[in-house]
């Protein structure tokens, strides 16, 4: 299940035994600091102190992640449907803004978010010979407000881009470091027309769950398990 040396089993309960454990904790730190900075009560003037998460320190450490490989399970709850749709696969992240989401079950889909573009490759099987064709669609994230809000928030979180995140959302942090919760509420009317709020939960360095509540109360629940993490050789 887990990668050997570089992997951190988040879904399992034991402490991740990875070589870069310090760096991993940095990731967690990023989120905590992030929340701390936006919740005045949590802001500590002593940013260097390890027990307190300050957003600047956290973000800069998060930004030290060079690549990450994450397993996900996504559950979509829609007012349109009686049942939830569940899908799973992997997310690959490469700093600063490359995200690839590969769904393997129950359908095959590859989404690449690189810079402003979102490319969706769908593999369709058709005909009697089950011939596979890949249909590739390219969206410019900037020109699709519907896609933009959710993609931007996810990307800015994972890349530790405080400025960008802060520009788009009001942020609210609660809970202890071992079980934190960050709530993002869009700033703009435009974004609010699509997304009501995004709730992120994590423990320590890791994002565990992202719940996106859309304007029509539909929810997407993304559950994450980090498998591999690599840091920049020379952390800034």
């Amino acid at each position: 299940m887990h990668g050997r040396d570089h992997s951190a089993g988040l879904m399992s309960d034991h402490v991740p035994r990875i070589r870069y454990s310090r760096a991993v904790s940095v990731v967690a730190g990023v989120f905590f600091g992030f929340m701390a900075s936006i919740c005045p009560a949590d802001v500590s003037p002593d940013q260097g102190h390890s027990a307190e998460w300050t957003i600047r320190a956290l973000m800069s450490r998060l930004a030290n992640v060079e690549t990450a490989s994450i397993e996900f399970t996504e559950t979509k709850q829609s007012v349109l449907l009686f049942i939830d749709t569940v899908s799973s696969g992997q997310i690959l992240y490469r700093s600063p803004d490359y995200i690839e989401k590969r769904t393997v079950s129950p359908f095959t889909e590859r989404v690449v978010i690189d810079g402003d573009s979102m490319i969706i490759d769908k593999t369709l099987t058709s005909g009697h010979d089950q011939e596979k064709t890949v249909i590739s669609q390219v969206y410019s994230v900037d020109s699709h407000p519907v896609l933009k809000a959710s993609i931007e928030s996810f990307r800015n979180m994972i890349s530790g881009n405080y400025e960008a995140l802060h520009n788009g959302f009001r942020l609210n942090l609660s809970g202890p470091m071992s079980g934190w919760n960050l709530k993002l509420v869009p700033d703009s009317e435009n974004a609010l027309a699509h997304i009501k709020e995004i709730n992120l939960t994590g423990s320590g360095a890791f994002l565990r769950r992202i719940v996106t509540v859309q304007a029509d109360d539909d929810q997407t629940i993304l559950e994450l398990a980090y498998r591999k993490l690599k840091y920049h050789v020379f952390p800034s």
Partner: peptide, 9 residues
């Protein structure tokens, strides 16, 4: 479509 990444569209 609703299950895919383009579900908002």
């Amino acid at each position: 479509g609703l299950a895919s990444a383009a579900s908002p569209l």
